[in-house]
Design a protein around this nucleic acid. Sequence first.
RNA 1: GGUCCCGUCGUCUAGUGGUCUAGGACAUUUGGUUCUCAUCCAAAAGAUCGCGGGUUCGACUCCCGCCGGGAUCACCA
Length: 475
Amino acid sequence: MSDTHVRTRIAPSPTGIPHIGNTRTALFDYLLAKKYSGEFILRIEDTDQKRLVPGAVDKIYQIHQFLGLIPDEDPVVGGSYGPYIQTQRLAIYQKYAQELVNIGAAYYCFCSEERLEELHKNNPFAKYDRHCRHLTPEEVKTQLDSGAPFVIRVKLPETGFSTWHDLVQGKLSLPNNECDDKVLMKTNSIPTYHLAVVVDDYLMKISHVIRGVEWMMSTPVHLFLYEALGYKPPILAHVPLLLGPDKSKLSKRHGAKSVLEYAADGYLPEAINNFLFYLGFSYKDNSELLTLEEMVKVFDENKIQRQNAIFDIQKLNYLNSQWIKKLSSEDLFNRLKTFIPEDWQKDKAKTISIIDIAKERLFTLKDFVPGAEYFFSTPIVDKKLVLEQSSRSEEETNKWFQKAINLLENTKEFSSCNLHEEFATAQKDSGLSPREAFMSLRVAISGRTVTPPLFDCFVILGKEETLKRLSSIFS
RNA sequence: GGUCCCGUCGUCUAGUGGUCUAGGACAUUUGGUUCUCAUCCAAAAGAUCGCGGGUUCGACUCCCGCCGGGAUCACCA
Protein backbone atom coordinates (compact mmCIF):
# COMPACT_ATOMS: atom_id res chain seq x y z
CA MET A 1 0.00 0.00 0.00
CA SER A 2 2.86 2.32 0.78
CA ASP A 3 3.92 2.41 -2.84
CA THR A 4 0.69 4.05 -4.00
CA HIS A 5 -0.40 7.46 -2.95
CA VAL A 6 -3.86 7.09 -1.51
CA ARG A 7 -6.63 9.21 -2.94
CA THR A 8 -10.24 8.37 -2.22
CA ARG A 9 -13.38 9.99 -3.37
CA ILE A 10 -17.00 10.28 -2.53
CA ALA A 11 -19.09 10.83 -5.61
CA PRO A 12 -22.68 11.61 -4.75
CA SER A 13 -25.20 12.40 -7.38
CA PRO A 14 -27.32 15.38 -6.44
CA THR A 15 -30.54 13.54 -7.11
CA GLY A 16 -31.42 13.76 -3.46
CA ILE A 17 -29.82 14.20 -0.07
CA PRO A 18 -27.48 11.34 0.77
CA HIS A 19 -28.90 9.25 3.58
CA ILE A 20 -26.93 8.05 6.54
CA GLY A 21 -25.91 4.85 4.72
CA ASN A 22 -24.22 6.83 1.97
CA THR A 23 -22.51 8.90 4.59
CA ARG A 24 -21.00 5.84 6.19
CA THR A 25 -19.27 5.11 2.92
CA ALA A 26 -17.98 8.68 2.93
CA LEU A 27 -16.60 8.14 6.44
CA PHE A 28 -14.68 5.08 5.30
CA ASP A 29 -13.35 7.00 2.30
CA TYR A 30 -12.21 9.78 4.56
CA LEU A 31 -10.59 7.47 7.11
CA LEU A 32 -8.72 5.52 4.48
CA ALA A 33 -7.36 8.64 2.83
CA LYS A 34 -6.28 10.18 6.12
CA LYS A 35 -4.79 6.98 7.44
CA TYR A 36 -2.34 6.98 4.56
CA SER A 37 -1.90 10.74 4.51
CA GLY A 38 -3.70 10.93 1.22
CA GLU A 39 -6.49 13.07 -0.14
CA PHE A 40 -10.21 12.77 0.21
CA ILE A 41 -12.08 14.15 -2.76
CA LEU A 42 -15.65 15.19 -3.35
CA ARG A 43 -16.90 14.94 -6.89
CA ILE A 44 -20.41 15.74 -7.96
CA GLU A 45 -21.83 13.19 -10.35
CA ASP A 46 -24.64 15.09 -11.96
CA THR A 47 -24.88 13.24 -15.25
CA ASP A 48 -28.50 12.47 -14.64
CA GLN A 49 -29.85 15.89 -15.39
CA LYS A 50 -33.45 14.75 -15.31
CA ARG A 51 -33.44 13.83 -11.66
CA LEU A 52 -31.45 16.70 -10.24
CA VAL A 53 -32.78 18.01 -6.96
CA PRO A 54 -32.19 21.71 -6.39
CA GLY A 55 -30.21 22.38 -3.26
CA ALA A 56 -28.89 18.85 -2.96
CA VAL A 57 -25.30 19.92 -3.48
CA ASP A 58 -25.56 22.38 -0.60
CA LYS A 59 -26.91 19.68 1.64
CA ILE A 60 -24.04 17.41 0.70
CA TYR A 61 -21.60 20.13 1.75
CA GLN A 62 -23.47 20.69 4.98
CA ILE A 63 -23.25 17.01 5.86
CA HIS A 64 -19.51 16.95 5.38
CA GLN A 65 -19.09 20.20 7.23
CA PHE A 66 -21.13 18.96 10.15
CA LEU A 67 -19.28 15.67 10.49
CA GLY A 68 -15.89 17.17 9.86
CA LEU A 69 -15.35 15.05 6.78
CA ILE A 70 -13.81 17.91 4.87
CA PRO A 71 -12.68 17.14 1.32
CA ASP A 72 -9.21 18.14 0.24
CA GLU A 73 -10.48 18.74 -3.26
CA ASP A 74 -14.01 19.58 -4.29
CA PRO A 75 -15.91 21.90 -6.63
CA VAL A 76 -15.54 24.85 -4.25
CA VAL A 77 -11.97 24.61 -3.00
CA GLY A 78 -10.87 23.15 -6.31
CA GLY A 79 -7.74 21.08 -6.80
CA SER A 80 -5.30 19.99 -9.46
CA TYR A 81 -7.70 17.60 -11.11
CA GLY A 82 -10.80 19.70 -11.62
CA PRO A 83 -13.37 20.49 -12.53
CA TYR A 84 -15.06 18.34 -9.90
CA ILE A 85 -18.50 18.52 -11.36
CA GLN A 86 -19.14 16.04 -14.11
CA THR A 87 -21.32 18.22 -16.29
CA GLN A 88 -18.33 20.55 -16.51
CA ARG A 89 -16.25 17.74 -17.92
CA LEU A 90 -18.43 16.76 -20.84
CA ALA A 91 -15.77 17.39 -23.50
CA ILE A 92 -13.43 15.01 -21.69
CA TYR A 93 -15.92 12.17 -21.76
CA GLN A 94 -16.64 12.89 -25.39
CA LYS A 95 -13.01 12.39 -26.22
CA TYR A 96 -12.80 9.13 -24.33
CA ALA A 97 -15.98 7.77 -25.80
CA GLN A 98 -14.64 8.44 -29.24
CA GLU A 99 -11.38 6.78 -28.41
CA LEU A 100 -13.14 3.71 -27.12
CA VAL A 101 -15.04 3.47 -30.38
CA ASN A 102 -11.85 3.92 -32.34
CA ILE A 103 -10.04 1.13 -30.57
CA GLY A 104 -13.03 -1.17 -30.89
CA ALA A 105 -13.98 -1.23 -27.20
CA ALA A 106 -17.28 0.51 -27.79
CA TYR A 107 -19.75 0.93 -30.60
CA TYR A 108 -22.53 3.12 -31.89
CA CYS A 109 -26.02 1.94 -31.24
CA PHE A 110 -29.00 3.31 -33.08
CA CYS A 111 -31.68 1.20 -31.47
CA SER A 112 -34.84 3.08 -30.68
CA GLU A 113 -36.38 3.16 -27.25
CA GLU A 114 -39.31 1.26 -28.66
CA ARG A 115 -37.07 -1.55 -29.81
CA LEU A 116 -35.45 -1.71 -26.38
CA GLU A 117 -38.82 -1.78 -24.72
CA GLU A 118 -39.87 -4.57 -27.00
CA LEU A 119 -36.90 -6.60 -25.80
CA HIS A 120 -38.03 -6.28 -22.21
CA LYS A 121 -41.64 -6.95 -22.92
CA ASN A 122 -41.45 -10.71 -22.61
CA ASN A 123 -38.57 -10.88 -20.20
CA PRO A 124 -38.01 -8.09 -17.73
CA PHE A 125 -34.50 -9.41 -17.18
CA ALA A 126 -33.59 -9.43 -20.84
CA LYS A 127 -30.23 -7.98 -21.77
CA TYR A 128 -29.54 -5.84 -24.78
CA ASP A 129 -29.36 -8.18 -27.75
CA ARG A 130 -26.29 -6.47 -29.17
CA HIS A 131 -28.15 -5.69 -32.34
CA CYS A 132 -25.90 -2.79 -33.34
CA ARG A 133 -22.70 -4.45 -32.24
CA HIS A 134 -22.35 -6.11 -35.58
CA LEU A 135 -23.19 -3.22 -37.83
CA THR A 136 -20.69 -2.78 -40.65
CA PRO A 137 -18.63 0.43 -40.76
CA GLU A 138 -20.63 1.44 -43.80
CA GLU A 139 -23.94 0.97 -42.05
CA VAL A 140 -22.69 3.02 -39.11
CA LYS A 141 -21.49 5.78 -41.39
CA THR A 142 -24.80 5.91 -43.23
CA GLN A 143 -26.72 6.22 -39.98
CA LEU A 144 -24.34 8.84 -38.60
CA ASP A 145 -24.48 10.87 -41.79
CA SER A 146 -28.23 10.80 -41.75
CA GLY A 147 -28.14 12.40 -38.33
CA ALA A 148 -29.83 9.50 -36.60
CA PRO A 149 -29.74 9.69 -32.79
CA PHE A 150 -27.30 7.26 -31.25
CA VAL A 151 -25.76 6.08 -28.04
CA ILE A 152 -22.35 4.55 -27.51
CA ARG A 153 -22.27 1.16 -25.86
CA VAL A 154 -19.42 -0.78 -24.35
CA LYS A 155 -18.29 -3.79 -26.35
CA LEU A 156 -17.92 -6.23 -23.52
CA PRO A 157 -16.35 -9.65 -24.11
CA GLU A 158 -19.08 -12.19 -24.67
CA THR A 159 -17.30 -14.87 -22.72
CA GLY A 160 -14.91 -15.20 -19.87
CA PHE A 161 -14.81 -13.80 -16.41
CA SER A 162 -13.89 -10.55 -14.86
CA THR A 163 -11.98 -11.11 -11.67
CA TRP A 164 -10.50 -8.81 -9.12
CA HIS A 165 -9.52 -8.75 -5.52
CA ASP A 166 -12.03 -6.66 -3.66
CA LEU A 167 -10.79 -5.05 -0.47
CA VAL A 168 -13.87 -6.09 1.45
CA GLN A 169 -15.45 -8.83 -0.63
CA GLY A 170 -12.26 -10.77 -1.27
CA LYS A 171 -11.64 -12.47 -4.56
CA LEU A 172 -14.51 -11.92 -6.94
CA SER A 173 -15.12 -13.48 -10.31
CA LEU A 174 -18.09 -12.38 -12.37
CA PRO A 175 -19.02 -13.78 -15.76
CA ASN A 176 -18.76 -11.16 -18.49
CA ASN A 177 -21.92 -12.31 -20.20
CA GLU A 178 -23.91 -11.32 -17.12
CA CYS A 179 -23.38 -7.68 -17.92
CA ASP A 180 -24.86 -6.44 -21.12
CA ASP A 181 -23.37 -3.85 -23.39
CA LYS A 182 -24.13 -0.92 -21.16
CA VAL A 183 -24.68 2.50 -22.58
CA LEU A 184 -21.62 4.69 -22.06
CA MET A 185 -22.78 7.84 -23.79
CA LYS A 186 -26.40 8.81 -23.96
CA THR A 187 -28.26 10.29 -26.94
CA ASN A 188 -27.86 13.71 -25.35
CA SER A 189 -24.07 13.32 -25.39
CA ILE A 190 -23.91 13.10 -21.64
CA PRO A 191 -22.05 10.05 -20.34
CA THR A 192 -23.59 7.50 -18.04
CA TYR A 193 -22.07 6.70 -14.68
CA HIS A 194 -20.08 3.82 -16.16
CA LEU A 195 -18.01 5.98 -18.47
CA ALA A 196 -17.75 9.04 -16.29
CA VAL A 197 -16.70 7.17 -13.18
CA VAL A 198 -13.88 5.34 -14.93
CA VAL A 199 -12.57 8.39 -16.74
CA ASP A 200 -12.73 10.59 -13.67
CA ASP A 201 -11.28 8.10 -11.25
CA TYR A 202 -8.41 7.64 -13.64
CA LEU A 203 -7.83 11.31 -14.35
CA MET A 204 -8.18 12.25 -10.70
CA LYS A 205 -5.71 9.53 -9.76
CA ILE A 206 -8.10 7.81 -7.39
CA SER A 207 -6.31 4.90 -5.72
CA HIS A 208 -9.22 3.31 -3.88
CA VAL A 209 -12.86 3.20 -4.86
CA ILE A 210 -15.07 2.53 -1.87
CA ARG A 211 -18.70 2.23 -2.87
CA GLY A 212 -21.84 0.29 -2.02
CA VAL A 213 -22.29 -3.34 -3.06
CA GLU A 214 -24.97 -2.25 -5.47
CA TRP A 215 -22.09 -1.44 -7.82
CA MET A 216 -20.50 -4.85 -7.63
CA MET A 217 -22.35 -6.36 -10.54
CA SER A 218 -21.39 -3.64 -12.97
CA THR A 219 -17.74 -3.70 -12.03
CA PRO A 220 -16.83 -5.91 -15.03
CA VAL A 221 -17.84 -3.02 -17.27
CA HIS A 222 -15.57 -0.63 -15.41
CA LEU A 223 -12.68 -3.05 -15.34
CA PHE A 224 -13.05 -3.66 -19.04
CA LEU A 225 -12.90 0.06 -19.70
CA TYR A 226 -9.74 0.46 -17.65
CA GLU A 227 -8.12 -2.35 -19.55
CA ALA A 228 -9.22 -1.07 -22.95
CA LEU A 229 -7.78 2.32 -22.13
CA GLY A 230 -4.62 0.74 -20.85
CA TYR A 231 -5.05 2.00 -17.30
CA LYS A 232 -4.39 0.29 -14.04
CA PRO A 233 -7.69 0.07 -12.18
CA PRO A 234 -7.96 1.40 -8.63
CA ILE A 235 -8.35 -0.89 -5.68
CA LEU A 236 -12.03 -1.65 -5.28
CA ALA A 237 -13.94 -2.00 -2.04
CA HIS A 238 -17.63 -2.79 -2.13
CA VAL A 239 -19.08 -2.08 1.26
CA PRO A 240 -22.28 -3.68 2.51
CA LEU A 241 -25.57 -1.94 2.89
CA LEU A 242 -27.14 -0.34 5.89
CA LEU A 243 -30.47 -1.95 6.71
CA GLY A 244 -33.46 -0.60 8.60
CA PRO A 245 -34.60 -2.22 11.87
CA ASP A 246 -36.94 -4.41 9.81
CA LYS A 247 -33.95 -5.55 7.77
CA SER A 248 -35.13 -3.70 4.74
CA LYS A 249 -32.72 -1.66 2.72
CA LEU A 250 -32.27 1.81 4.09
CA SER A 251 -33.79 4.09 1.54
CA LYS A 252 -35.54 7.39 1.33
CA ARG A 253 -38.86 5.68 0.71
CA HIS A 254 -38.52 3.84 4.00
CA GLY A 255 -37.77 7.00 5.86
CA ALA A 256 -34.01 6.73 5.86
CA LYS A 257 -32.78 9.99 7.21
CA SER A 258 -29.87 12.08 6.20
CA VAL A 259 -27.23 13.13 8.67
CA LEU A 260 -28.74 16.60 8.63
CA GLU A 261 -31.94 15.24 10.07
CA TYR A 262 -30.05 13.49 12.85
CA ALA A 263 -28.30 16.75 13.52
CA ALA A 264 -31.67 18.45 13.82
CA ASP A 265 -32.76 15.70 16.21
CA GLY A 266 -29.93 16.60 18.53
CA TYR A 267 -27.26 14.08 17.67
CA LEU A 268 -23.65 15.17 17.86
CA PRO A 269 -21.33 14.71 14.90
CA GLU A 270 -18.90 12.82 17.13
CA ALA A 271 -21.60 10.33 18.06
CA ILE A 272 -22.75 9.89 14.48
CA ASN A 273 -19.22 9.30 13.27
CA ASN A 274 -18.61 6.78 16.03
CA PHE A 275 -21.86 5.02 15.40
CA LEU A 276 -21.22 4.75 11.67
CA PHE A 277 -17.68 3.61 12.36
CA TYR A 278 -18.88 0.71 14.48
CA LEU A 279 -21.45 -0.37 11.97
CA GLY A 280 -19.72 -2.97 9.89
CA PHE A 281 -16.48 -2.56 11.68
CA SER A 282 -14.99 -3.68 14.92
CA TYR A 283 -12.65 -1.99 17.32
CA LYS A 284 -12.27 -3.13 20.90
CA ASP A 285 -15.78 -3.49 22.31
CA ASN A 286 -17.42 -1.25 19.73
CA SER A 287 -18.46 1.33 22.28
CA GLU A 288 -15.36 3.46 22.84
CA LEU A 289 -15.67 7.14 22.24
CA LEU A 290 -13.29 7.99 19.43
CA THR A 291 -12.57 11.27 17.75
CA LEU A 292 -12.15 11.41 14.00
CA GLU A 293 -8.39 11.54 14.48
CA GLU A 294 -8.46 8.48 16.68
CA MET A 295 -10.63 6.64 14.18
CA VAL A 296 -8.13 7.43 11.46
CA LYS A 297 -5.45 5.75 13.55
CA VAL A 298 -7.33 2.56 14.28
CA PHE A 299 -9.22 2.18 11.03
CA ASP A 300 -8.32 -0.92 9.07
CA GLU A 301 -9.72 -1.21 5.58
CA ASN A 302 -9.14 -4.95 5.67
CA LYS A 303 -11.53 -5.42 8.56
CA ILE A 304 -14.68 -4.02 7.02
CA GLN A 305 -17.51 -6.51 7.44
CA ARG A 306 -19.09 -8.22 4.49
CA GLN A 307 -22.56 -8.63 5.82
CA ASN A 308 -25.17 -5.93 5.86
CA ALA A 309 -25.55 -4.02 9.09
CA ILE A 310 -28.76 -3.01 10.76
CA PHE A 311 -29.17 0.54 11.89
CA ASP A 312 -29.81 0.42 15.63
CA ILE A 313 -30.87 3.76 17.02
CA GLN A 314 -30.32 2.54 20.61
CA LYS A 315 -26.63 2.36 20.01
CA LEU A 316 -26.63 5.84 18.51
CA ASN A 317 -28.50 7.08 21.58
CA TYR A 318 -25.95 5.52 23.87
CA LEU A 319 -23.00 6.98 22.01
CA ASN A 320 -24.71 10.35 21.88
CA SER A 321 -25.42 10.43 25.61
CA GLN A 322 -21.85 9.43 26.34
CA TRP A 323 -20.49 12.20 24.16
CA ILE A 324 -22.80 14.72 25.79
CA LYS A 325 -21.44 13.74 29.20
CA LYS A 326 -17.90 13.98 27.97
CA LEU A 327 -18.19 17.46 26.48
CA SER A 328 -17.73 20.57 28.59
CA SER A 329 -20.84 22.56 29.44
CA GLU A 330 -19.42 25.54 27.59
CA ASP A 331 -19.02 23.42 24.48
CA LEU A 332 -22.50 22.00 24.91
CA PHE A 333 -23.91 25.47 25.27
CA ASN A 334 -22.59 26.38 21.86
CA ARG A 335 -23.98 23.26 20.27
CA LEU A 336 -27.29 23.82 22.02
CA LYS A 337 -27.72 27.25 20.48
CA THR A 338 -30.05 26.16 17.71
CA PHE A 339 -32.18 24.25 20.19
CA ILE A 340 -32.76 26.80 22.92
CA PRO A 341 -34.84 29.97 23.09
CA GLU A 342 -33.27 33.38 22.58
CA ASP A 343 -33.50 34.47 26.22
CA TRP A 344 -31.84 31.30 27.46
CA GLN A 345 -28.95 32.09 25.17
CA LYS A 346 -28.63 35.57 26.56
CA ASP A 347 -28.49 34.23 30.09
CA LYS A 348 -25.46 32.16 29.30
CA ALA A 349 -24.20 31.74 32.86
CA LYS A 350 -27.52 30.41 34.04
CA THR A 351 -27.98 28.12 31.05
CA ILE A 352 -24.52 26.70 31.49
CA SER A 353 -25.17 25.98 35.14
CA ILE A 354 -28.30 24.12 34.11
CA ILE A 355 -26.35 22.18 31.51
CA ASP A 356 -23.92 21.27 34.27
CA ILE A 357 -26.55 19.48 36.26
CA ALA A 358 -28.68 18.26 33.36
CA LYS A 359 -26.22 16.86 30.87
CA GLU A 360 -25.89 13.45 32.41
CA ARG A 361 -29.54 12.79 31.78
CA LEU A 362 -29.58 13.88 28.16
CA PHE A 363 -29.75 11.46 25.25
CA THR A 364 -29.97 14.12 22.59
CA LEU A 365 -29.60 17.87 22.50
CA LYS A 366 -33.33 18.04 21.89
CA ASP A 367 -34.02 16.68 25.36
CA PHE A 368 -32.57 19.72 27.05
CA VAL A 369 -35.30 22.31 26.69
CA PRO A 370 -38.27 20.19 27.84
CA GLY A 371 -36.36 19.21 30.97
CA ALA A 372 -35.26 22.72 31.85
CA GLU A 373 -38.19 24.96 31.04
CA TYR A 374 -39.20 25.45 34.64
CA PHE A 375 -35.94 27.25 35.30
CA PHE A 376 -37.02 30.04 33.00
CA SER A 377 -40.75 30.19 33.48
CA THR A 378 -43.04 29.55 36.39
CA PRO A 379 -44.36 26.02 36.14
CA ILE A 380 -47.96 25.07 36.61
CA VAL A 381 -47.99 23.05 39.78
CA ASP A 382 -50.72 20.61 40.64
CA LYS A 383 -51.20 20.78 44.41
CA LYS A 384 -52.63 17.28 44.38
CA LEU A 385 -49.35 15.99 42.98
CA VAL A 386 -47.44 17.72 45.77
CA LEU A 387 -49.63 16.06 48.40
CA GLU A 388 -49.36 12.76 46.65
CA GLN A 389 -45.60 12.94 46.86
CA SER A 390 -45.55 13.94 50.51
CA SER A 391 -48.05 11.22 51.39
CA ARG A 392 -49.42 13.55 54.03
CA SER A 393 -52.49 15.64 54.59
CA GLU A 394 -52.60 19.15 53.27
CA GLU A 395 -52.14 20.49 56.77
CA GLU A 396 -49.09 18.41 57.50
CA THR A 397 -47.56 19.09 54.11
CA ASN A 398 -48.14 22.76 54.60
CA LYS A 399 -46.33 22.52 57.92
CA TRP A 400 -43.36 20.91 56.23
CA PHE A 401 -43.36 23.60 53.57
CA GLN A 402 -43.40 26.37 56.21
CA LYS A 403 -40.44 24.71 57.82
CA ALA A 404 -38.65 24.57 54.47
CA ILE A 405 -39.39 28.21 53.78
CA ASN A 406 -38.16 29.17 57.18
CA LEU A 407 -35.01 27.20 56.66
CA LEU A 408 -34.35 28.89 53.35
CA GLU A 409 -34.90 32.33 54.73
CA ASN A 410 -32.45 31.75 57.53
CA THR A 411 -29.91 29.57 55.84
CA LYS A 412 -26.37 30.57 56.48
CA GLU A 413 -25.22 29.60 53.05
CA PHE A 414 -27.33 29.24 49.92
CA SER A 415 -25.31 26.44 48.37
CA SER A 416 -26.34 23.01 47.23
CA CYS A 417 -24.07 21.34 49.70
CA ASN A 418 -25.09 23.30 52.74
CA LEU A 419 -28.75 23.25 51.84
CA HIS A 420 -28.58 19.50 51.57
CA GLU A 421 -27.20 19.30 55.09
CA GLU A 422 -29.71 21.64 56.65
CA PHE A 423 -32.66 20.10 54.89
CA ALA A 424 -31.60 16.58 55.79
CA THR A 425 -31.74 17.54 59.44
CA ALA A 426 -35.08 19.24 59.06
CA GLN A 427 -36.48 16.32 57.14
CA LYS A 428 -35.55 13.92 59.93
CA ASP A 429 -37.24 16.12 62.52
CA SER A 430 -40.34 16.40 60.39
CA GLY A 431 -41.08 12.70 60.41
CA LEU A 432 -41.21 12.57 56.61
CA SER A 433 -39.05 10.16 54.67
CA PRO A 434 -36.37 11.78 52.53
CA ARG A 435 -38.34 10.82 49.49
CA GLU A 436 -41.58 12.33 50.74
CA ALA A 437 -39.90 15.46 51.94
CA PHE A 438 -37.83 16.18 48.88
CA MET A 439 -40.21 14.96 46.24
CA SER A 440 -42.96 17.25 47.42
CA LEU A 441 -40.57 20.19 47.28
CA ARG A 442 -39.37 19.08 43.88
CA VAL A 443 -42.85 19.10 42.45
CA ALA A 444 -43.52 22.45 44.06
CA ILE A 445 -40.62 24.18 42.35
CA SER A 446 -40.76 22.42 39.01
CA GLY A 447 -44.18 20.91 38.52
CA ARG A 448 -42.53 17.59 37.70
CA THR A 449 -41.30 14.52 39.47
CA VAL A 450 -38.10 14.29 37.51
CA THR A 451 -35.46 16.97 37.83
CA PRO A 452 -31.78 17.22 38.62
CA PRO A 453 -30.91 17.06 42.34
CA LEU A 454 -33.25 19.28 44.30
CA PHE A 455 -30.76 21.62 45.94
CA ASP A 456 -28.92 22.21 42.68
CA CYS A 457 -32.24 23.35 41.32
CA PHE A 458 -32.74 25.65 44.32
CA VAL A 459 -29.40 27.27 43.71
CA ILE A 460 -30.08 27.87 40.04
CA LEU A 461 -33.53 29.27 40.72
CA GLY A 462 -32.11 31.50 43.40
CA LYS A 463 -33.31 32.03 46.91
CA GLU A 464 -36.02 34.49 46.06
CA GLU A 465 -37.57 32.48 43.25
CA THR A 466 -37.40 29.27 45.23
CA LEU A 467 -39.17 30.91 48.15
CA LYS A 468 -41.77 32.34 45.83
CA ARG A 469 -42.59 28.98 44.33
CA LEU A 470 -42.67 27.18 47.66
CA SER A 471 -44.91 29.80 49.22
CA SER A 472 -47.36 29.84 46.35
CA ILE A 473 -48.48 26.26 46.89
CA PHE A 474 -50.43 26.75 50.07
CA SER A 475 -51.19 30.43 49.87
C1' G B 1 -35.46 -16.43 -13.17
C1' G B 2 -29.76 -15.82 -14.22
C1' U B 3 -25.41 -14.15 -11.69
C1' C B 4 -22.86 -12.63 -7.33
C1' C B 5 -22.52 -11.69 -1.97
C1' C B 6 -23.91 -12.78 3.02
C1' G B 7 -25.76 -16.07 7.47
C1' U B 8 -22.29 -16.25 15.75
C1' C B 9 -27.16 -13.61 21.61
C1' G B 10 -32.76 -8.62 19.71
C1' U B 11 -28.49 -5.32 17.62
C1' C B 12 -22.96 -4.18 16.51
C1' U B 13 -19.36 -7.72 16.81
C1' A B 14 -14.68 -11.23 18.83
C1' G B 15 -13.45 -15.76 17.07
C1' U B 16 -9.08 -18.19 10.89
C1' G B 17 -9.16 -26.82 13.74
C1' G B 18 -8.48 -28.12 20.06
C1' U B 19 -7.54 -22.30 25.03
C1' C B 20 -15.35 -21.83 22.86
C1' U B 21 -19.54 -26.00 28.06
C1' A B 22 -18.62 -19.29 22.25
C1' G B 23 -15.97 -13.48 24.66
C1' G B 24 -17.22 -8.03 24.69
C1' A B 25 -20.52 -3.80 23.81
C1' C B 26 -25.64 -1.63 23.18
C1' A B 27 -30.54 -2.85 24.55
C1' U B 28 -33.36 -5.79 28.50
C1' U B 29 -33.97 -7.47 33.80
C1' U B 30 -32.28 -7.40 38.91
C1' G B 31 -29.40 -5.48 42.99
C1' G B 32 -26.27 -1.46 45.11
C1' U B 33 -25.44 4.04 45.51
C1' U B 34 -29.37 7.99 45.82
C1' C B 35 -34.25 13.30 47.38
C1' U B 36 -36.72 11.68 41.74
C1' C B 37 -34.77 10.57 37.06
C1' A B 38 -30.24 9.81 35.13
C1' U B 39 -25.20 8.64 36.09
C1' C B 40 -22.00 5.19 38.26
C1' C B 41 -21.02 0.09 40.15
C1' A B 42 -22.34 -5.12 40.36
C1' A B 43 -24.98 -9.19 38.53
C1' A B 44 -28.52 -12.02 35.56
C1' A B 45 -30.86 -13.49 31.37
C1' G B 46 -29.98 -13.94 26.25
C1' A B 47 -26.59 -17.81 20.54
C1' U B 48 -28.50 -25.93 19.89
C1' C B 49 -22.50 -20.56 16.00
C1' G B 50 -29.06 -20.87 9.51
C1' C B 51 -30.00 -26.47 8.44
C1' G B 52 -28.11 -31.28 6.76
C1' G B 53 -24.17 -34.09 5.25
C1' G B 54 -19.07 -34.99 4.94
C1' U B 55 -13.24 -34.33 6.00
C1' U B 56 -10.73 -34.92 10.81
C1' C B 57 -8.86 -37.97 16.85
C1' G B 58 -11.43 -33.14 17.09
C1' A B 59 -15.22 -27.92 13.41
C1' C B 60 -18.24 -21.79 14.67
C1' U B 61 -13.75 -22.40 12.09
C1' C B 62 -12.27 -26.71 5.92
C1' C B 63 -15.56 -29.10 1.70
C1' C B 64 -20.52 -30.15 -0.52
C1' G B 65 -25.80 -29.63 -0.62
C1' C B 66 -30.01 -27.12 1.07
C1' C B 67 -32.62 -23.11 3.27
C1' G B 68 -32.95 -17.99 4.41
C1' G B 69 -31.58 -12.87 3.49
C1' G B 70 -29.41 -9.26 0.20
C1' A B 71 -27.49 -7.04 -4.43
C1' U B 72 -27.95 -6.73 -9.62
C1' C B 73 -30.08 -7.50 -14.68
C1' A B 74 -32.29 1.39 -17.34
C1' C B 75 -30.10 6.25 -22.56
C1' C B 76 -30.55 6.15 -12.88
C1' A B 77 -26.76 6.69 -10.13
